[in-house]
């Protein structure tokens, strides 16, 4: 079981990339990926919470009594979510408004609690840091990719650094279905299918 730090980090990028390999934390994945920016913003917020809670859970793992561990983890996670919420309200207010209730809902994102329970409570601080960072970046990439596909087909425009870029030219008819709820489900389902096809080779 002696995995190197690099392995702990890179497994989150492909082998266990959420939400494709670990089908957890779907709500933010479906809800905030209307545009690339929202997706990546949400991914980074989740990454921050994931890394901080992993570090704290790992450093307190010998102090927390096993019977009430889940409650302790939730309090740790909720604290960091409050931090993210206040920081985003102060510095990235437009994004904060767009993500809305999905920022406080990071508390109940199963990925964060899942990593705390499955990894951080059993491993050292540095390994937990690598694990949190890897899973977080994988999650951000996945959200960004899904956001890109939906924004591209839904509006024909990709917004990067607040600059809209017309991809398909003026005669493109926006496929509005993609940025609405049904498009989110179907798009994620098909992306999962593509991942399965690549994995089975």
């Amino acid at each position: 079981m002696a995995k190197t730090l690099v392995q702990e980090f890179t497994k989150g990028l492909w082998d266990e990339i959420p939400p494709f390999r670990l089908v957890l934390g779907l709500c933010p994945v479906l809800a905030v990926t209307k545009t690339v920016e929202n997706g990546i913003g949400m991914g980074l917020a989740t990454t921050f919470v994931l890394v901080c809670s992993n570090i704290l859970v790992s450093s307190l793992r010998k102090v927390i009594p096993p019977k009430v561990r889940i409650a302790c983890f939730i309090i740790i996670i909720a604290t960091f979510v409050t931090v993210v919420e206040l920081v985003m309200q102060a510095f990235t207010y437009p994004l904060f408004l767009k993500l809305g209730i999905f920022i406080p809902l990071i508390v109940v994102n199963c990925i964060v609690l899942g990593r705390a329970e499955a990894f951080a409570s059993k491993n050292g601080i540095i390994a937990s840091l690598a694990d949190g960072l890897g899973i977080g970046i994988g999650f951000t990439l996945a959200l960004g990719a899904l956001g890109a596909v939906r924004e591209l087909f839904g509006t024909g425009i990709l917004t990067i650094w607040e600059k809209p870029i017309q991809i398909f030219g003026p005669s493109f008819q926006p496929f509005t279905f993609m940025i609405e709820a049904p498009g989110a489900f179907i798009c994620l389902g098909l992306m999962l299918c593509v991942m399965n096809m690549m994995g089975s080779k």
Binding site: V23, P182, A184, F185, I186, G189, N196
Partner: peptide, 17 residues
Amino acid sequence: KPLQDTSIALVTAGILS
């Protein structure tokens, strides 16, 4: 085969949605 399980479930959920 690649569509099985979660993947087809998500597509179905999309149609229901």
